[in-house]
């Protein structure tokens, strides 16, 4: 799918093969090509990663005593993360060909459904 995208091939032509240069060019490209809605999603993703990391750190440092509470919290983060990533993938216009049956609105509805389910189970799990 990546081959069909003209923007990418244009960017590739001008760059050398040095990984560092490629990496340094990434943020700029990102800011340039990504729609602002997707950026919002990405910000949420970053937040989730951050939350997850903190929980994990807490678990490592302070112990995992109410294990199901930790697990519920952590899985909630991870689950929300993957659901959000799914939403991001589905709503990305570049992936239109993959998801013929899933319109962005439908994707959002799915996302809400999944999240509700996820948090229902989490709350049930915490007791």
């Amino acid at each position: 799918m990546s081959k069909s995208r003209p923007a990418a091939s244009a960017g590739a032509a001008s760059n050398s093969n040095n990984p560092l240069t490629i990496l340094s060019a990434l943020p700029a490209r990102y800011l340039q090509t990504t729609p602002s809605r997707t950026k919002l999603i990405d910000a949420f993703l970053l937040f989730l990663i951050f939350t997850g990391a903190i929980q994990f750190l807490y678990c490592v440092l302070a112990g995992n005593y109410p294990f199901n509470a930790f697990l519920a919290g952590f899985t909630a983060t991870v689950g929300q993360f993957v659901l959000t990533v799914s939403l991001r993938i589905q709503s990305n216009p570049e992936n239109k060909s993959e998801f013929k049956a899933v319109s962005p609105e439908r994707a959002f509805a799915d996302y809400v459904f999944g999240s509700v389910l996820l948090h229902f189970f989490c709350i049930n799990f915490i007791n």
Binding site: L71, G79, L83, V85, F99
Partner: peptide, 19 residues
């Protein structure tokens, strides 16, 4: 991407549910 969506939504929810 379809595989990712399907699998991850199944796994994240399913595992939590199974517990």
């Amino acid at each position: 991407a379809r595989l990712y969506v399907a699998y991850c939504s199944w796994y994240a929810l399913g595992t939590l549910a199974s517990m």
